[in-house]
Write a protein that binds this DNA or RNA. Sequence first.
DNA 1: GTGCATGTTACGAG
DNA 2: ACTCGTAACATGCA
Length: 242
Amino acid sequence: MPEGPSILHLKNKMLPFKGKVVKAAGGYGKMPTAWINGKKLQDILTWGKHILFVFANGTVRVHLGLFGEVVINERKKVNRSFFLEFATGEINGYIVRAQKLEKTAKETYDWRTDILSPLFDKAHVKSLIKTKAAKTIDDVLMDQDVFSGVGNKIRNESLFRAGIHPLSNTGKIPAAKITKLVNEVLIYTKRFYDQLEKKGVHDDFQVYKQEYAPDGSEVTMKNLTKTKRKIYFSEHKQVLYK
DNA sequence: GTGCATGTTACGAG
DNA sequence: ACTCGTAACATGCA
């Protein structure tokens, strides 16, 4: 389910529980949950793909991984890995990883890299990209310490829209193109999110899982051996900086 | 049954 | 100590 926009969309659906008291918390995950019982859910935050449930005595980070799912006021057949039950309603996580933060959310996270946060800081992120000059740009985009919330879809679509080949050497990409890339990430992320909010699904792809790009150019699919992910790009429209 | 999917982390080798 | 590569995890759908 994840990728930043989906997580923020999910958070919005959970917001009615903000301020409510947890009657029972649990799940098969390793994290102890007794400390949550009877506590008020003070806030729900997100950072990239992380969901944060804030309580007076601690914050729970929930991550959905590749297959994770959170449903509200319904149950699936399999066991819940993490759940919060309230007097009315419940939040049920399946195949999610829950852990208690050692510090507060504010001390743990830097929202300047969160592509869905109003605190996102382009200049800061561009300076981080400079420190990754030796890596290929597809890896930098997926680096959650640089672009929190970017997943495989946003990566492929942003690179296409910026006209940059995914295997480009980051240090060789002109500054103006990096700026364009950062802007395209933000634009596409917002479009992704807006679609989810408006119609509940997101299906706006120009290269991801496509055979042809909108301009008719052929889309190439390549398996990345290291990360075991797939990249989709147009050899014709995306410049390889090497 | 097979293959694939919006992801991360743990651990051993080098 | 750090970086790299691989395995591991767990479900649902075509």
